[in-house]
Design a protein around this nucleic acid. Structure first.
Lengths: 202, 202
DNA sequence: CCAAAAAAGTGAACTCGTTGCACTTATTTC
DNA sequence: GAAATAAGTGCAACGAGTTCACTTTTTTGG
């Protein structure tokens, strides 16, 4: 309680700071337990106990068990939109999406050790893969709009939604193959070739 | 024991017939209750009671609550594969998939009244939409193989998986737009145009 | 400065899908 | 006809998620 060591980062009241701290404590406890013993073998009540809060409080901060793991998906979404908006001159929209997808694939050796363990956790837990994909797809509308802007097509052209949706699905389609890089490339070949005839009508 | 509507089925023993009857009783009770009061407002125990079985028995016949609603998805999958295999001469694979998708869209006027109510139930229940889509996607591998056969591409070419996956996703992408027919067509335009350059390499 | 609103947190009880267990039938097989 | 096999039973339990009535803390404004 007597915690006066202010680091003065943002203009936050005490209340907001405490709230953020509670949230962080919960997320940290959850991630630690999940990494130690696996997602399915850790219960909500255990997490709440470890973070020293009640389950009620936990659910006021997170919408569900899966949400405990993905605390920062909004950033990923924004990065994807930026990748399209700020693509090199002359590069097509699907080409930019391809590049971005390739760049953000399951990371290679030489990342922070925590990151590897995190991805291992996600990739080995069906419930987490599903949740991640579902939230990833929420970017469809925003991405479709960016695509429309960048292509000069009407904002509500269903072709933009289609490209957005397919681009977001591509990683999941590639997941079935041993060589995920080639699979991803083939999927984007399809989209890139198909998009040419659509974009040329604009 | 009422006569089975099934045509020329294998010689069923009494045991198998009773099992099938129990299964049907459960499915019937479930659908009736769901249509009467909505999916979320009917519990498993209620359904078991209505079908006069125990919940244990219910779960020996169906893998979960959602499976009670979709008793015959295998047929739909087989029909899609057939639509590609038996497409008209000279029609491309994605064109056949487009036709099939358009033909099987929801709610054309003039079908049996039960069908309309059923689709209404599914389309208004997120849990059912998700489940339906998940099982629909299970057709990806089979569809990819048919595509490979029909295109002369290697059986494990990721491009086939990509086209299969995207074609199965197209209806979901189109769902966001008011004019779902146009949206579906735009999505398949993308795939059809893109596929030309891939298929021509075979 | 202090009362009262607002927000965070609590703990327990509850719903609901789902599973495990020990058990009883009914049917098939030898 | 006995033994193997499979269907079905009833009940208790589990865990995720939600709700409720309640306490504590922080903010606000007269």
């Amino acid at each position: 309680m007597p915690d006066d060591g202010d680091v003065a980062a943002a203009p936050m009241g005490r209340r907001e700071r405490k709230k953020a701290a509670t949230r962080q404590a919960i997320a940290d406890a959850a991630l630690r337990l999940f990494l130690e013993r696996g997602y399915d073998d850790v219960g909500i009540r255990e997490i709440a106990d470890a973070a020293d809060v009640s389950t009620t409080t936990l659910f006021k901060h997170f919408s569900g068990k899966e949400a405990l793991v993905f605390d920062r998906q909004d950033e990923r979404k924004a990065l994807q939109l930026a990748a399209v908006r700020e693509r090199p001159q002359g590069q097509s929209v699907p080409a930019a999406l391809r590049e971005h997808a390739l760049r953000n694939r399951r990371l290679r050796p030489g990342d922070e050790p925590g990151v590897t363990a995190f991805l291992e956790l996600v990739n080995s837990t069906p419930a987490l893969l599903d949740y991640q994909h579902a939230t990833w797809l929420e970017n469809t509308a925003a991405l479709a709009q960016v695509i429309a802007e960048e292509s000069g097509l009407p904002a509500d052209d269903p072709a933009c939604t289609a490209l957005a949706h397919f681009a977001l699905e591509a990683p999941r389609a590639a997941r079935r193959h041993h060589d995920s890089t080639e699979a991803l490339n083939r999927a984007f070949d399809l989209l890139e070739n198909g998009w040419q005839s659509i974009a040329s009508q604009a």
